[in-house]
Design a protein around this nucleic acid. Sequence first.
DNA 1: AATGAGGGCAACCGCCAGCCG
DNA 2: TCGGCTGGCGGTTGCCCTCAT
Length: 241
Amino acid sequence: MGRAPCCEKMGLKRGPWTPEEDRILVAHIERHGHSNWRALPKQAGLLRCGKSCRLRWINYLRPDIKRGNFTREEEDAIIHLHHMLGNRWSAIATRLPGRTDNEIKNVWHTHLKKRLEPKPSSQAPKRKPKKQQPEAVTLDGPTTLPVSPEQSLSSSTTTTTDYSAASSLENADSFISEEFQIDDIFWSETLAMTMDSSGSPIETGDSFGLDGASAPSTNDDVDFWLKLFMQASDMQTLPQI
DNA sequence: AATGAGGGCAACCGCCAGCCG
DNA sequence: TCGGCTGGCGGTTGCCCTCAT
């Protein structure tokens, strides 16, 4: 299975897109669609490779892209979905309408991963957050992970980073919006709903690591967590997750 | 005011899987 | 069945901006 070259390197522009290129790409896609990314730039008169066009469209120009800072709910959703799915950013993105895998990946690496890392108490951040919109959450602040006793579903296993981080986060004393707390009641109800017919909890497996290589071992596991999370979304009055 | 450090994010790179002739 | 082509994905890079000194 030979590998096609990404694009013809010669004569193709790289780097940031100009407003004019954006306009051309959007106009072309609106008129003709994007049935063939490879042929698209030539048809549209763009000196870009098809991959670049696709990326630009998907990550930036698509009309349904939601711009702006991630909300607390979205960040919590990412944390939770990442716990479920690992580094499957596209899968996570499908659960967050308007957000792209690239964006989620960036947010994870720049904000959320740090947030979950245990913070040495003696090391206060030296810099203020770069920018904050009014509705934006404090990126360095604590989060409200849906941690509960029922996480023994997987706590009997060798989960490491997330739970320690979660517990440290739980100990944080900064403001946490009550509205988005997921408490024991939630877990009791949700888990009760996800019992199988025999009344025993669905086996969740033990492979929800962070490295992607240890993603859920079966589709059933993923389905379980996705179902669980969607139910959580319904119950927590989340606007859209 | 200058400058170096660090963070954020758009874009690129390389691999993989599926489709099709 | 095989091999080429394409779209899609995750990892990584590098530029630009902000902040601390």
